[in-house]
């Protein structure tokens, strides 16, 4: 009898890196840090998620603040991806990106330019403007965008390193509202497509990967889960499983049964 190492989704990931702007990642799960009940729970959740790239926001220093998210990331060897959360104009976003580059010593920026507080939907006009300026300034730009294939193509054409279409509004947990558009974006993209926002639970993260996304970005689904650490592990497994299923190639959908046992003699 021969023994064979099970070709698990985790093992398969080793030979299937995510590549963004020439940099390789083993994990295809990018996490955010907002909303965690404590820094300790956040750290445990980040470790359980297996993430290698995690977003942070930039805010004015409040004197006497203890324990920083920056320390947590460095301690665990997780690369920090600063974002421009809270910016409503291209000018705001460009200014924040420059500060982030200085603070975190990285020219990677997750570009968010949102239209209003109620929906937090991307403002496509300001977004494209900011993306163009930041690419010109040498940033590696990962823009949070709507699920519009036309806008995604425009962002790629001006030199963004990835596109990050939303599944649904930030923090909504509504899942992927327009899987057809996500497939269109995936089909045409020459840069990684990272689903960003809307993921509520593990099956939705797996679906994103099955649709052909290169990675999943999420925060709230983990940080506000009843057990963030357990959900982080669930998301790690879901992303790996969804990726493996995509690579394996699913069976076609049929209207009627197709017997899986041989017909009786």
């Amino acid at each position: 009898m021969t023994t064979r190492t099970p070709d698990t989704a985790d093992a398969a990931a080793v030979r299937d890196p995510l590549v963004i702007a020439g940099r390789e990642f083993t994990s295809r799960l990018i996490t955010g840090t907002g909303g965690a009940p404590s820094m300790r729970v956040l750290e445990e959740a980040l470790v359980a998620s297996g993430t290698e790239l995690t977003t942070v926001a930039l805010r004015r220093v409040s004197p006497g603040a203890h324990g920083s998210v920056w320390d947590v990331l460095r301690r665990n060897g997780i690369r920090a991806l600063p974002n421009t959360a809270g910016c409503f104009t291209a000018a705001d976003a460009v200014r924040t990106a420059r500060l982030a580059r200085e603070a975190l010593e990285t020219d990677w920026i997750k570009l968010e330019v949102v239209a209003d507080e109620r929906t937090l939907l991307p403002d496509p006009v300001e977004l494209l403007d900011a993306a163009e300026r930041l690419v010109d300034e040498g940033f590696t730009v990962l823009p949070y965008t709507s699920d519009d294939p036309v806008l995604a193509a425009r962002l790629e054409r001006i030199g963004c390193a990835a596109v990050m279409p939303l599944g649904a509004p930030i923090g909504s947990g509504l899942g992927i509202r327009n899987p057809h558009n996500i497939e269109l974006i995936v089909e045409q993209a020459g840069v990684p497509v990272i689903i960003d926002a809307g993921i509520g639970t593990a099956s939705e993260a797996a679906l994103a990967m099955e649709l052909g996304c290169d990675a999943v970005m999420l925060a709230t689904a983990v940080t506000r889960a009843q057990d963030p650490v357990l959900m982080a592990a669930a998301m790690r497994d879901a992303v790996a499983a969804g990726r493996a299923a995509r690579r394996a190639g699913r069976i076609p959908v049929r209207r009627y049964a197709h017997a899986s046992s041989p017909a009786a003699d």
Binding site: T33, G35, T55, V56, L58, V61, K110, E112
Partner: peptide, 10 residues
């Protein structure tokens, strides 16, 4: 003068 740092977010 603005002094900023990384905080939890995104």
């Amino acid at each position: 003068v603005d002094v900023l740092t990384a905080v939890q977010g995104g």
